[in-house]
């Protein structure tokens, strides 16, 4: 696998790039006068170096928000700014690494020539293009598909081609909409590794996904959207959101009869497995320490729901 290498312009950057949604609203109006409010009073700041997840049910407005950010849609109210400039101006001057939810590439183009085209539009020089195209082909395992037409690619390979074009240049902003959609488990894991390697103090990433587990692993914060509104912004770290998680599945290797002494409310959930309810991580740790001190041998402690899943259910009214 190729290592993630910066292009030449990576070292020429200094200004902080912050993405700011200011009271953004988007209403779609039909010719018959019907209107649909896709996004409503949405305000959010995404800091430089941050990976922000965007989660929400189907039709929540995630893709609309991304289209507003890229300037493909004009907001009905409010503004979207990147680095203090209107978002579209920023994109036209600097470009953004973008993987859309639907990977739409002319089906008659060949995989490699698609990348050469996009590299040209991205502003890479004639000398850089072959190296950079080779690099993303190698990074995303597209070598055997390089001469295939886009229409001949499987869904997973098409998704990888979409990701490859987003990584052609060493962008400071990456926007990935449902990035693992259609990828098999091996490439889903590889994608997570790639995102991990892409994390950099001057690079901002937005990842929209239905997959809360993925966002929990990758993002620093997750904006939960429902019906076009920002419901809440959740930090994915356990330390600050401990009260959100109250139920854990405890699995013991031995000392089953000691569980109720340490966790009075423990409920048996299977052989050696118990569901325990606590008020905080501190209480959880103290009870586990108590159990170990009494001679219990713990195999695993797993939250019933992740911090994000718990917050998501509360935010969209499915607690």
């Amino acid at each position: 696998m190729a290592e993630l290498s910066p292009t030449r312009d990576a070292n020429r950057r200094s200004t902080a790039v912050v993405i700011e949604f200011k009271n953004v609203g988007k209403t779609y109006k039909s010719l018959l006068g019907n209107s649909v409010q896709a996004v409503e009073e949405f305000s959010l700041v995404v800091n430089e170096g941050e990976i922000l997840g965007i989660a929400g049910p189907n039709g929540a407005g995630k893709s609309t928000l991304i289209s507003l950010m890229l300037g493909y849609l004009r907001p009905t109210t409010g503004t979207v700014e990147i680095g203090g400039r209107p978002a579209r101006t920023y994109v036209e001057q600097n470009g953004i690494g973008y993987l859309s939810e639907l990977v739409s590439i002319n089906p008659k183009w060949k995989a490699e020539s698609t990348l050469v085209r996009f590299a040209t539009l991205a502003g890479l020089s004639e000398e850089e293009i072959p190296h950079r195209v080779e690099y993303v082909i190698d990074l995303l395992g597209l070598g055997e598909h390089r001469d295939k037409k886009v229409k001949a690619l499987s869904k997973g390979n098409l998704q990888r081609l979409g990701l490859a074009q987003a990584l052609l240049r060493d962008e400071r902003i990456l926007v990935l909409d449902e990035p693992t959609h259609g990828l098999d488990p091996v490439w889903t894991q590889r994608f997570r590794d790639i995102v991990g390697e892409l994390r950099r103090s001057d690079r901002t990433m937005l990842i929209a996904s239905h997959n809360l587990d993925e966002l929990q692993r990758l993002a620093d914060r997750v904006a939960i959207i429902d019906r076009g509104r920002l419901q809440r912004v959740v930090s994915t770290g356990y330390e600050s959101a401990a009260p959100a998680v109250t139920r854990f599945r405890l699995t013991l290797a031995s000392g089953f009869d000691l569980v109720h002494a340490a966790f009075p409310s423990a409920e048996e959930a299977g052989k050696g497995e118990y569901d325990v309810t606590v008020q905080s991580i501190q209480e959880l740790n103290a009870s586990i320490a108590n159990l170990i001190a009494r001679g219990g041998l713990i195999a695993s402690v797993v939250p019933e729901r992740s911090v994000l899943e718990q917050q998501f259910r509360e935010a969209v009214g499915e607690s």
Binding site: G71, Y72, S100, S104, L121, A166
Partner: peptide, 15 residues
Amino acid sequence: KNGYYRFLFSKPINR
């Protein structure tokens, strides 16, 4: 119609 604009205009070009 086909959504090709999405990748094209994420690049630093004026449409």
